[in-house]
Design a protein around this nucleic acid. Structure first.
Length: 795
DNA sequence: ATACCTCGAGTTCG
DNA sequence: CTCGAGGTAT
């Protein structure tokens, strides 16, 4: 009790007391009972009033006053705290079998004392930070981290700021000394909100890597005022040191009852705790929690089973540092920490230099991960990642590992920031990064062995020429020993070439050649490969274009080019202003295509492919859409000459038969055209290159125009519909479904937007389904898709 | 100029 | 799957 000073009025003293009681009560309702009864603003008002009184009369500020939660002055480092009762670590189980073995061991050791099946107290295992809270005569006096289990750090000031931790115990008859143990954690929502603020802060506030690290980092803040701003929470799950004293009730005999008692004393206890009978009951609980896991407002990494009877716990005792009477049943880890041993550079088919982290292998999400892409230099800078760092790796939902963040506390001395190498590790060419672009590229082009191999690999890939059996390793061998330099060389390969190549690779790497029964060297693979190559000769225009690997031309653009042009001969001589007429082809893409076909090497490769028997089986006449696109004003406008807009192009093109004629007329200052436009056109036509472009445009207009045929309108019953496929379908593959839908005129997109007609969901769906619900897009099951395809089935 | 939608490119492990 | 960036509609 504070010493009553004469200068303080009794009303003030009473008010301070009642404020403290009221605020404590609201904290308890909010954090323990989960039933808040006043608005945050009202709560804040009460707090401010109490602060004001205590500020005016410091002698009224009690040790357990809620105002202490806002953060006392910074302390220098943390004192050490020895745990009277060591804080244990639990043995882990990762499988049902291990849990059954755990229960059997207990059974055997107790030798039938638990007659009607073992009863366990079961609870979720929070992914936070274990701490111990010490109360003397009901008052919170000290809080410590787990540390090594024997000695932890005194983080009392920081813990005081956590509202879920009671500053004094509720009720009568509390023990003289009570040490409560539990987990400090950061709720997911609070974590998200914190990071949102951090992202909006323009780098002033560092985002937290995950809720767990957020909680740990916050507790280790030297300035409690910072901890006070971090939204931490707490659940109690055990007691440590206890001295009952004269007036207190003894503790109950079962762990599950003990948790209830803790709740009565004012500690938050998870509503998910329960009891279970035997190993099977525990496993039931494990599965129930597993289902709820993703929906919980906090992270958990498993569940804990504790033998409920405290007397039996005592009988079982410990093996080393772990109790025999409890075990943690862990979910497969979705996140792990490991170290970055190196950062290597991958060169893609476009020359893109992608940094990849070489990790100390770590088991996460069911597989061993040793590589993780880092995307680009910006990403590495954002993470402030260095070789030697300890990082957190995630493999959530998705398959592809991701470096989530760096554990700064564990950064070794002497690390340096990472920089993109100046030269390609494969060919030694410069690596350059275009202004404003995220990617850096090796400028070696197809002269770079890595790019050549990747280009050929892409050419052979399933969605391109579909050469089955031609993998990266084989291409490397063929390229290294000069059997294949360009994609066309694939169609010159003989069985003998393949076997020779294999022999030389074996020699180089000192491997013994694979043999079949009878000691003969295996050759079946080579025969199969030759067969695949032969088979791939017959292809479609879209596949062929995609296979060429033109920048910005993926499957979708290749398809569009194919329907609009119908044949490779027209495409390869069409200049970029006319290519822009194809829907979804803009300036960048059109120029990239034009540029590709302007390279002598590429033209030669195409000629050779055709000479070696590659046949485009679906060649057809250009689309009727060209009739509108090929008119002179549209082409003139598309040339992107300064000052020439749509209207001006109309005016200039009137009464002319070709683009060249328009320029000729402008050159002699025809009437009604402003000087600046004429100047602009003259400047344009001054270079040889642009004059050639004018000629090519005219030639293309003539060539395409001559071959257009107004074909019969295709039957497209699903025209205008856009579908998104997600999850695994059972009656057909996603590719097949896509093909069928497209054949009926529908579009199949990769991501959900509000324009999506419906999302078709199979088994094991991911984020697309959530997105669909969010946007209110229809979701169909597989049956509905099959029905749709059936009603529109083609004969 | 801006907002939104799509496409392209790179990616891991067994 | 995710990110970046190109294309198009507003």
């Amino acid at each position: 009790m504070p010493i009553i000073n004469q200068s303080i009025s009794p009303e003030t003293i009473a008010r301070a007391q009642s404020l403290r009681r009221e605020i404590g009560e609201h904290n308890h309702r909010y954090h323990v009972l989960d039933a808040p009864s006043i608005a945050d603003a009202e709560y804040d008002a009460l707090m401010r009033e109490l602060e004001a009184i205590e500020h005016a009369h410091p002698e009224l500020a009690t040790l357990d006053s809620p105002t202490r939660r806002v953060g006392a002055k910074p302390t220098g480092g943390f004192a050490q705290v020895r745990h009277v009762v060591p804080m244990l670590s639990l043995a882990n189980a990762f499988s049902d079998e291990e849990v059954r073995a755990f229960a059997n061991r207990i059974d055997a050791r107790l030798d039938g004392k638990a007659a009607s099946g073992l009863e366990f107290s079961v609870e979720p295992k929070f992914d936070g930070l274990a701490i111990a809270l010490r109360y003397e005569r009901g008052l919170f006096v000290q809080g410590a981290t787990r540390g090594d289990g024997e000695v932890g750090e005194d983080v009392t000031a920081n813990l005081r700021t956590i509202r879920a931790i009671p500053l004094h115990l509720r009720g009568e008859g509390v023990p003289d000394v009570l040490e409560v143990r539990g987990e400090v954690y950061m709720p997911r929502a609070a974590f998200e909100k914190y990071n949102e603020t951090a992202r909006a802060s323009d780098g002033r506030i560092k985002p937290l890597v995950n809720p767990r690290n957020g909680a740990a980092g916050s507790l280790r803040q030297l300035d409690p005022a910072i901890t006070a701003q971090r939204p931490l929470a707490f659940y109690a799950y055990a007691v440590g040191e206890v001295a009952i004293g004269e007036h207190a009730e003894p503790l109950p005999p079962r762990h599950s009852q003990l948790l209830h008692t803790l709740r009565d004393w004012g500690f938050p206890v998870s509503p998910l705790v329960g009891t279970a009978i035997g190993a099977e009951g525990c496993l039931d609980y494990f599965r129930r929690i597993g289902v709820q896991r993703d929906g919980l407002p906090f992270d958990i990494d498993g569940v804990v089973y504790k033998l409920d009877d405290l007397a039996l716990q005592g009988e079982l005792g410990f093996v080393g540092r772990t109790p025999r009477w409890a075990i943690a049943h862990k979910f497969p880890a979705q996140e792990q920490t490991t170290t970055v041993e190196a950062i290597e550079i991958n060169i893609g088919r476009s020359g893109a230099a992608t940094p990849v982290a070489k990790l100390k292998p770590v088991f996460v999400g069911g597989v061993t991960v040793s590589n993780a892409t880092l995307h680009n230099a910006d990403q590495i800078a954002r993470l402030d990642l260095r070789v030697g760092d300890t990082v957190i790796v995630r493999r959530a939902g998705d398959v592809i590992p991701e470096v989530v963040g760096v554990v700064m506390d564990r950064r070794p001395a002497g690390t340096v920031p990472w920089t993109m190498p100046a030269h390609c590790p494969v060919c030694g060419s410069a690596i350059e990064r275009e202004e404003g672009q995220a990617v850096a590229r090796c400028i070696g082009g197809l002269g770079c062995p890595a790019q050549r191999v990747q280009a050929i690999f892409h050419f052979a890939s399933r969605r391109a020429m579909d050469i089955d059996g031609l993998g990266e390793r084989l291409i490397e061998g063929l390229s290294d020993f000069g059997f294949v330099e360009s994609v066309a060389d694939l169609y010159r390969l003989t069985l003998d070439d393949l076997l020779q190549m294999k022999r030389r690779v074996d020699e180089r790497e000192g491997t013994t050649p694979e043999t079949v029964k009878g000691g003969k060297i295996a050759t079946k693979w080579a025969q199969n490969l030759i067969e695949s190559i032969n088979h791939s000769r017959r292809t479609t225009l879209a596949r062929f274009l995609y296979a060429l690997g033109i920048a910005h031309v993926g499957e979708s653009t290749a398809k569009a080019l194919s329907t609009w042009f119908g044949g490779i001969d027209l495409i390869r001589c069409t200049p970029w202003p006319i290519l822009k007429s194809v829907p979804d082809v803009g300036s960048e893409v059109a120029r990239a295509i034009d540029h590709f076909f302007a390279q002598p090497g590429n033209r030669q490769a195409i000629d050779e492919l055709i000479a070696h028997g590659v046949v485009i089986a679906d060649a057809h006449a250009p689309a009727a859409g060209w009739r509108a696109a090929l008119v002179l004003p549209r082409v003139l406008e598309a040339m992107e000459i300064p000052k020439i807009t749509g209207k001006r192009a109309e005016q200039l093109a009137a009464n002319h038969a070709s683009i060249a004629a328009i320029f000729d007329a402008a050159a002699v200052h025809a009437s009604g055209i402003p000087d600046d436009v004429v100047t602009s056109m003259q400047a344009f036509a001054a270079s040889d290159e642009e004059r050639a472009l004018i000629r090519r445009c005219d030639a293309a207009i003539a060539a395409i125009g001559a071959s257009i045929v107004d074909g019969e309108t295709v039957n497209a019953p699903l025209e205008g519909m856009t579908f998104v496929l997600t999850g695994t379908l059972s009656s057909l593959t996603r590719d097949a479904a896509k093909e069928k839908l497209e054949a009926l005129g529908a579009k199949v997109a990769g991501s959900v937007s509000k324009k999506t007609t419906a999302v078709i969901a199979g088994e094991a769906t991911g984020s697309k389904l959530d997105k669909a619900r969010e946007l209110g897009v229809e979701v169909w099951d597989e049956a509905r898709l099959v029905e749709l395809l059936a009603t529109h089935a083609r004969p």
